[in-house]
């Protein structure tokens, strides 16, 4: 059986909202840069961005630019989405080697779902969604 390549949701139905704590992440994504908030006092990464460092309660953040490399921690092969019964999505939880302790959730795209596996190395790319924002997606690292 030839599997459908995994894709992502159509841009026009994907929305995000931001607040003061998360906006720097999304502004960087618009420039195709992957960043993560690192506590400026104790160095702990956290995602999603929240007001306090959970380790030391500091509010000071260094927005650190990451390499974009990631590793699949776990994933699901999703068949269908409301209104899109035939879509195939690989939704993955990703470890970020240069932001230890922080994880991202994103689609692995243009890949046969059968080859995706836990521990698989992937790299980021950015995909435009509604209102001019971009979301991080991932593809296998060659």
């Amino acid at each position: 059986m030839s599997a459908a390549l995994a894709t992502s949701l159509p841009a026009e139905i994907v929305q995000i909202t931001t607040d003061a704590y998360t906006e720097p992440f999304w502004l960087a994504a618009k420039e195709d840069r992957l960043v993560a908030p690192k506590c400026a006092d104790c160095g702990t990464f956290r995602l999603p961005p929240t007001p306090f460092c959970p380790e030391c309660r500091s509010k000071a953040v260094d927005w650190t630019e990451l390499s974009g490399r990631a590793e699949v921690f776990s994933y699901s092969v999703v068949h269908g989405f409301p209104g899109l019964p035939d879509i195939t999505l690989v939704a993955a939880v990703l470890d970020l080697p240069d932001a230890p302790g922080a994880r991202l959730i994103g689609n692995i795209v243009d890949v046969d779902p059968a080859v995706v596996h836990i521990g698989m190395p992937v790299t980021v790319q950015f995909s435009t969604i509604s209102d001019g924002w971009k979301v991080p997606q991932f593809r296998p690292l060659d």
Partner: peptide, 11 residues
């Protein structure tokens, strides 16, 4: 703002 880090993946 929090679920914006989750929902785009289509779960």
């Amino acid at each position: 703002p929090l679920s914006s880090f989750l929902k785009p993946a289509g779960l």
